[in-house]
């Protein structure tokens, strides 16, 4: 497909955005990301293990910043201050790169976003010149506020992170799509290919996923399935589905039948 998605100053060719967590090793990570066709690839920022062999391969050796648009996340941050600090480190790590995925997570077992801290962090980051793609709840009012603050993409969850439950909130996502002008990307909740298609058929600009690919039995094959699912969903959305009817409507002519 030749269509593109504009996220802030970035023009993306793929509507599938993927994470790099939970893979068996860096080789599998690289092969799955390649098969996904994604150009935006998320990563986390963590303390360097000082005990390890410094020549051990690094994620950035496999997922080259020259080839992919890296999207550092703030996973693990519970406050706006932590998230802002992580983004500043990421910007230094990636030589001034401004695109970040903001997520401030509550401590609960649901991993739901802490929207109060998310809003606080978003204000600071936008003010500092970051291009903020923000993970949030499916609350349309919060989504509108994040857009008003200046986030370049709003990314509501479809179901809890890593749950693989599929889109549980199509009406909320639909409402967010109706209200926002910046790209809406479903982030979290996808379990299999049809879930991604459902999100795209609703009109989302893209889908971001990690676990659904990384924890598949064959991640490389699932990455390809997701690529096709996202493209299919987008095509179906653009094509415009037929109306739903309560009764049957024969596909073959009901005239000219042999008597």
């Amino acid at each position: 497909m030749t269509d593109t998605i504009q996220v802030g100053s970035y023009t993306l060719k793929s509507r599938l955005l993927v994470g790099t967590g939970k893979y068996r090793d860096l080789d599998e990570t690289g092969r799955a990301i390649e098969a996904s066709g994604a150009d935006v690839v998320t990563m986390a920022v963590r303390r360097t293990n000082l005990g390890q062999n410094p020549n051990e391969p690094n994620l950035l050796d496999v997922i080259s910043p020259d080839r992919y648009t890296l999207l550092p996340n703030t996973a693990g941050c519970h406050t706006a201050d932590d998230a802002v600090r992580t983004c500043r480190l990421a910007r230094e790590l990636l030589d001034g790169h401004q695109l970040v995925k903001l997520e401030v997570i509550s401590r609960s077992r649901t991993l739901y976003p802490d929207v109060v801290e998310t809003l606080n962090a978003a204000r600071i980051l936008v003010n500092e010149g970051f291009e903020v793609m923000v993970y949030t709840s499916d609350d349309p009012l919060i989504a509108m506020e994040l857009e008003a603050i200046g986030c370049v993409a709003v990314m509501p969850l479809g179901a809890p992170i890593g749950s693989g439950l599929g889109l549980q909130n199509p009406y909320n996502i639909r409402e967010i799509l109706d209200q926002l002008n910046v790209p809406v990307i479903v982030d979290a909740g996808v379990g299999t290919a049809s879930d991604a298609t459902v999100a795209m058929e609703l009109g989302c600009e893209g889908v971001l996923m990690n676990t659904a690919i990384a924890e598949a039995k064959d991640p490389v094959k699932m990455a390809r399935a997701m690529r096709l699912a996202v493209d299919s969903g987008r095509l179906a959305y653009e094509a415009g589905r037929m109306p739903r009817k309560r009764y049957a409507d024969a596909s073959s002519p009901e005239t000219g039948l042999i008597e």
Partner: peptide, 10 residues
Amino acid sequence: LEIVQAIGGG
């Protein structure tokens, strides 16, 4: 000192 690097994440 805090010294960080990129690692896999979602």
